[in-house]
Nucleic acid binder design. Structure first.
Lengths: 335, 335
DNA sequence: GTGAAAGCGCTAACAA
DNA sequence: TTGTTAGCGCTTTCAC
């Protein structure tokens, strides 16, 4: 490979002149400059970004992103938003998948830190409190936690409001459709999103004067299969629910799939609402009434929080939970 | 920040000993080693991966990935597969989005090259032949083109077989369901996938003795809206098609949305088949008969091609088009 | 206007 | 078994 040295030699200038041409960091005689540029072109020289970062002793113009799974539909939107936002100040993305696994998560974050990223955006998994978050708190690299809120940590956080919106789902089912036996299929245990949505569900029941029945909560998990099984269990109890709330994309999909395969009609046999919207919602047999998180806005916000933190590392840390949007369709029983 | 020097000093050893402890690259007295490790822990030292790469004069243990849009459902699966495959030999992913824009694509690839990635996986856009691919061919960085095949280039390529599978869709519609007026909503012009699927469509018509009617081809584009508009145009012609093939995810979604909004029933009024499957297919009003590309296998294959290329840069380049799987559901008219 | 030279943080002969 | 030292490719202060 060709280095700046090679360019300098063939262009008959010093290395520092080449460097300055490339960086536009001091005046260079137009004649010299074009000569240098010609040689660069001719030799096919390409700047070594890594060496530059080392020499500058600075950061790498890149931001690290860690999500649980690439195949979750919404991460596409967040990453896309982060990418665009980061690109506007010349940063590239370093990405990794954690699979909600504490070991993978820890290694990923460590590797991002070793690569001297300027900032980290992380959707921290259930056991991230053990090693990952403490490591991040010790490190001086600006970090923002995405989606899942970790109240105990001193890091910036951006996510969605969960409690009240979920309660509204219950309101709708109870007040508009007169449902009293409302079930919930909750997400992966240990995530704040799971806890908060469960909380919202209970809050909704209470304020509508409905007794909380633990049998109506189906505990799901990380995958669609968990949602499916939870639905199966929920529908097998004595007085099965007449309405169900899926706590996230996977739970909703799993539940709906089980219902359909078992010929249980939505909303006639059981009404359905979902926390998390999805693109195809309107094409479904019974278009799903769903809460849509604004992932694009969340991604953009995450980057701006990151930038703010870079400018002022000592500012008090912030927790931002954006409001999602409820779209009433037909699965709840609305015409 | 603390450097290896700091560790060396406080541990009372030379810098090289610290380096060797960290890299396990030569024998170190257990006592010394644990002393060094203790200091590392105590000082919160973290290896500077960038400096290491520069010093080694080698590559960066990272591979660059460029896709057109994070929000395409299938890229999640590919990236996930690439991530896992890359992780097995210690590589991290550097990601970027091109938006099918030649300028963004060029800048992205250039930036990946400057960051000295070990390899590049790129879903090259329609105009990538202008600057991006030539640059990649000049560079010595192993590259594999994903999804879209560029026959003119000397790079390795991995994608899906398009022609014959699309022709089979026509076979099915013609032979099983007796359709004669079969339309196609094609994808973004300039992509090989678009061309090949159009070719397969025509091949299918021909071998079933159906005259090719240009009016039955709706030219779509990059987005769902394009699919929607193409569907609208297709259904407005004189003898509208009695069956439609969506050439990809976006076209299918757009078309189905338009059909539903206009109360045109699938498959009764018009049968439908799709190139590209999607997770929610079975929950739709009329579950979609679709060709599923094996994105996970494609991702894994891409990485192994990359590795092969790293080992032998002079080997003849390969073009790999994997067979997709057709799932017959109901939108075609099957019960 | 340009060049020499001292780093940046790390690796890897070479020497002891 | 460990230390010394010459790089890796680039940036940047001085000095001319």
């Amino acid at each position: 490979v060709t280095t700046m040295r090679d360019v300098a030699i063939t262009a008959q200038v010093s290395i520092s002149t080449v460097s300055h041409v490339l960086n536009g960091t001091r005046y260079v005689e137009p004649a010299t400059e074009s000569r240098v540029r010609a040689v660069i072109e001719q030799l096919g020289y390409r700047h070594n970004h890594l060496a530059r970062v080392v020499a500058r002793g600075g950061r790498s113009q890149s931001i690290g992103v860690g999500v649980s799974s690439w195949t979750k539909p919404y991460f596409g939107a967040v990453v896309s938003a982060i990418d665009r936002a980061a690109a506007r100040f010349g940063s590239t993305l370093l990405l990794g998948e954690t699979s909600e696994d504490e070991e993978r998560e820890y290694r990923l974050v460590n590797s991002l830190l070793e690569r001297r990223v300027d900032g980290i955006v992380l959707a921290a998994g259930p056991r991230s409190g053990e090693r990952t978050l403490p490591m991040l708190e010790r490190a001086t690299t600006p970090t923002v936690l995405l989606d899942r809120i970790h109240p105990a940590t001193k890091l910036d956080q951006v996510g969605t409001e969960n409690v009240e919106p979920t309660a509204r789902l219950v309101d709708h089912l109870a007040q508009v459709h007169g449902k009293r036996r409302i079930g919930l299929i909750s997400g992966l245990a240990g995530l704040s999103t799971t806890k908060e949505r469960l909380l919202g569900y209970e809050k909704g029941l209470e304020r509508n004067g409905i007794r909380i029945d633990p049998a109506l909560v189906g505990h799901g998990g990380p995958s669609v299969q968990h949602g499916e099984q939870a639905a199966a269990r929920l529908l097998a109890i004595n007085h099965p629910p007449r309405a169900i709330i899926g706590a996230n994309n996977e739970m909703t999909f799993g539940a709906l799939r089980w219902l359909r395969r078992n010929q249980i009609s939505v909303p006639d046999d059981v009404a359905f609402c979902s926390f998390d919207d999805f693109e195809w919602a309107e094409l479904m047999t019974s278009p799903i009434t769903a809460i849509a998180q604004d992932w694009t806005r969340i991604g953009i916000r995450a980057v701006s929080v990151l930038r703010a933190r870079m400018e002022d590392p000592t500012a008090p840390h912030t927790i931002d939970q954006l409001s999602p949007n409820l779209t009433i369709r037909n699965s709840c029983g609305c015409p």
